[in-house]
């Protein structure tokens, strides 16, 4: 049952059409930000309204939705968004990455490689990769039109000159199909390589900033770097305290007030699956 008095997936049909048109143009122009008439949602701006509007516009009754925040299905905002869609669209949800047809995410890409039958929807706080260097959107639009990304190269080069390496650890800028500079949203740079040639369609929604953009499947996505300073994804150099993974991205837990630390997988489903795998093998 869906919420009485509201359309399927909350948005009215005219709004969905407007967003669907924006999504199609976003796919046709990989990495280009499409302005769209973002609506006020019943959840606050900055809490995933862009991703929610994109998901609401593509979602159908046969979809299975997974929502993660920081890689986890049980973080409060992920729970809240999942509940919202159960309430307004009555659709099935899952915590298992492989079972989902649509995955809405904040700040992570699942560890398990996505397939052609999946769509990844990112919540984006700030779609403009140049915003710290040039706050005026009229100007950044012009720079994108000219593919003039000198500002960003200079900024990264200054990091190297001052610190010996690039200091950006998340929201690390990427070039999409060698044309548009794009914000991957605040995922850790560790996740950037997963965007490259991904089998799944990647859609990005920024509600407050009213922009939608996309990376089609199998599209080159290159993290900016320099020949003598190649891009290096960083993770904490530890093994997950639960599943033992040495390749997944880790959350750091403070275990006591005496310098104690533990590290566990940020992707809760990945960790869960690894915990069950040895048991299944043993049986």
């Amino acid at each position: 049952m869906t919420e009485a008095g509201y359309n399927f997936a909350y948005l009215d049909e005219a709004t969905k059409r407007m967003i669907r048109r924006a999504i199609l143009k976003a796919v046709a122009i990989p990495g280009h930000q499409i302005p769209f008439g973002a609506r006020e949602m019943p959840l606050p701006y900055g809490w995933g309204t862009g991703g929610i509007q994109v998901t609401a516009s593509i979602l159908g009754p046969n979809d299975v939705l997974k929502v993660i925040d920081q890689g986890a299905d049980d973080t409060t905002n992920a729970v809240s968004i999942r509940r919202f869609f159960t309430r307004v669209a009555g659709i099935a949800t899952t915590e298992v990455t492989g079972e989902a047809s649509i995955i809405q995410t904040r700040h992570r890409i699942p560890e398990k490689p996505l397939t052609e039958n999946q769509i990844l929807v990112y919540q984006v706080p700030q779609p403009e990769p140049l915003f710290r260097l040039e706050p005026h959107r009229a100007e950044t639009r012009r720079l994108h039109a000219l593919a003039d990304y000198g500002l960003m190269h200079v900024r990264l080069y200054e990091d190297i000159a001052r610190l010996g390496h690039i200091a950006k650890a998340y929201d690390y800028p990427v070039m999409v199909n060698e044309r548009y500079l794009m914000s991957p949203s605040p995922i850790p740079a560790f996740d950037n390589p997963k965007m490259h040639q991904m089998a799944a369609l990647q859609l990005f929604g920024a509600g407050r900033e009213k922009r939608i953009y996309a990376v089609p499947p199998y599209t080159p996505v290159r993290s900016l770097d320099f020949e003598d300073h190649p891009f290096r994804p960083i993770r904490a150099p530890h093994a997950c305290a639960i599943c033992g993974s040495t390749t997944s991205y880790l959350d750091e837990l403070v275990t006591d007030d005496a310098g104690g630390r533990a590290f566990i997988c940020s992707d809760t489903d990945y960790c869960q699956e690894r915990q069950q795998a040895p048991k299944a093998a043993a049986e």
Binding site: F8, E13, K16, R17, R20, I23, L24, V27, A28, S57, I58, L59, G60, P61, L201, P216, P217
Partner: peptide, 15 residues
């Protein structure tokens, strides 16, 4: 729902 299904087919085609 027909609009949604049709759009998804177009989206898949475009992707």
């Amino acid at each position: 729902l027909d609009a949604q299904a049709s759009f998804r087919a177009v989206l898949e085609a475009m992707s």
